[in-house]
Design a protein around this nucleic acid. Structure first.
Lengths: 288, 288
DNA sequence: CATGAGGTGAAGATAATTTTTCAGAGAAAT
DNA sequence: ATTTCTCTGAAAAATTATCTTCACCTCATG
């Protein structure tokens, strides 16, 4: 019964409808399903029929009343809007539906979908462009948990371009690094809840020095965002006592891919040089 | 090009919102825009706030009342539905189809799907059970790039349970750590291509000492897998010169969630103690 | 042309939604 | 510790939507 939509039912029963009802059905189908979302009065006016006609039609379709009809329209819409992949019930096929692997993955996919839907592409590209600019030095800062993300980012950027520094915010020596920050430099900050005070201070001071700040944070946005030129807000909710960094990592890797592409000639040279160094290291290791 | 949708406005003004309003905004954005289509009461209940809160929020956004707000939501929806590209195979809606964000995300989703489909649940659970066993010490080892993943895992496990050690494989002091490894202990190894020789050696020696080895690797499997009791093979291909660690992180977080659940009483106590220590740290920080 | 059956919409009755009011809770400041 | 302020949701009030009734209309049929 729920397999066929209201639109289908309207068309199937079209012959059994009266003149005004057909006029109404036409109007609904014309711009389905948004046309059926207003109040019963709005719908009636759009179709140029009276409200009782609308009420009678939805009853003919088997609904108790207009609100019930509209509820089903909304359900249909939701099914249609939400991306098809998000409806994957079981990801790990060999696991039961409620297994942590499936629940977790389900949540992560949702996070990805929502985060990406809200991202501003111009901002993304502005950030990548700044990171690819060889005239700007790059500093990377993480917090207690996010230091792993910061490290991951640093490892890649270090290969992609020169003048990249990882500020180990754990140490209380970070003010030393600030000495190096010049106007126009880029400071990439990771601050996901529990936001850290020292990170905020660092951002404030970097901003004062005229640095461009790129922030990776969660949907609730760290206070650092006041100073940020580019702000990536990642959804982090998962069925766990911990927050998920998967979406942050996804964006991070996208940024890396984009920057590396903008910078390809430079990156290429650096990667080759790195390879060569590894080869020589390995050569020596053989004999140890 | 962002035409100032309500979603945009909600995000832009997020800071100026109060607690309950943020909660509401979150709920609306969670399943936007269908979430905003019911009655004001429905919307309020979904977000677990009161109706006046909803009314106040929409007024903050500049609408005269909820109906006016909803009318605009419907308009947006209509524009979105009727737009020629109603197909939802783009993830970042504001980006062109071939944008790196969309290509990258597409690849990552594919990786997740493939990896999860192949995972063996019993193996997963065996690994988690071992990690939750307090009688076994846990050692974590990463490589050049994967050290960030190892660090992330270590950070969480350290809170969840006692006797967790991070072996910094970069240092050549890792043999020192091996002295500590006893029979039945768990060694978690990250080895994603370019596989590292020292990692392989470490695995071999740990196996000899009777340690249980859990390996995170890629689809081509590091040679370490010969010694591994549990082997997670993650798809890593993305449109980039680099490999993606997103799937590895996803599995990692799933493992963390599972272990933490098995160990909840212990974890709980440790997390509380940690919170308390942070509170005291923050107290002191106030005066610095 | 008369008649009646079924269809339609105006208008009022009913039910609901939305808005307003207000008191208590909680945070920030003194 | 106390005061002040803002925020929040319960409940009442206002508004609006939905439903019901009924008179009128159309059109097929005798």
């Amino acid at each position: 019964m729920s397999s066929n939509t209201i639109a289908d039912r309207l068309q199937a029963r079209f012959d059994t409808l009266t003149r005004a009802e057909r006029q109404l059905a036409d109007a609904i189908l014309e711009n389905y399903p948004v046309s059926a979302l207003g109040t019963i009065t709005t719908v009636a006016q759009t179709a140029d029929v009276s409200t009782p006609t609308v009420a009678r039609l939805v009853q003919k379709l088997g609904f108790k009343g207009f609100p019930e009809f509209q509820a089903e329209i909304r359900q249909e819409l939701e099914a249609r809007i939400s991306s098809p992949i998000a409806k994957h019930d079981t990801w790990a096929e060999h696991a039961p539906e409620g297994h942590i692997l499936n629940r977790f993955t389900e949540a992560v996919i949702g996070n990805i979908s929502q985060t990406l839907a809200q991202i501003d592409v111009e901002t993304f590209e502005r950030g990548c462009a700044a990171l690819a600019d060889p005239d700007r030095a790059v500093f990377v800062v993480g917090g207690r948990i996010t230091r792993a993300l910061a490290d991951y980012f640093f490892l890649h950027m270090q290969v992609i371009r020169p003048r990249v520094t990882h500020i180990q915010s754990i140490s209380n020596a970070w003010p030393h690094y600030l000495l190096e920050v010049a106007e126009g430099d880029v400071v990439v900050i990771f601050d996901i809840r529990r936001y850290e005070n020292s990170t905020l201070k660092l951002a404030e001071m970097a901003a004062e020095k005229g640095a461009k700040i790129i922030l990776f944070t969660d949907q609730w946005r760290s206070p650092v965002h006041k100073y940020a030129d580019v702000c990536f807000c990642c959804r982090i909710g998962v069925p766990s006592a911990w927050d998920s960094s998967v979406v942050s990592l996804l964006l991070l890797e996208s940024v890396i891919a984009d920057v590396q592409e903008r910078n390809w000639p430079v990156t290429r040279g650096r990667m080759d040089a790195l390879e060569e160094m590894f080869d020589r290291t390995r050569f020596f290791r053989k004999f140890t």
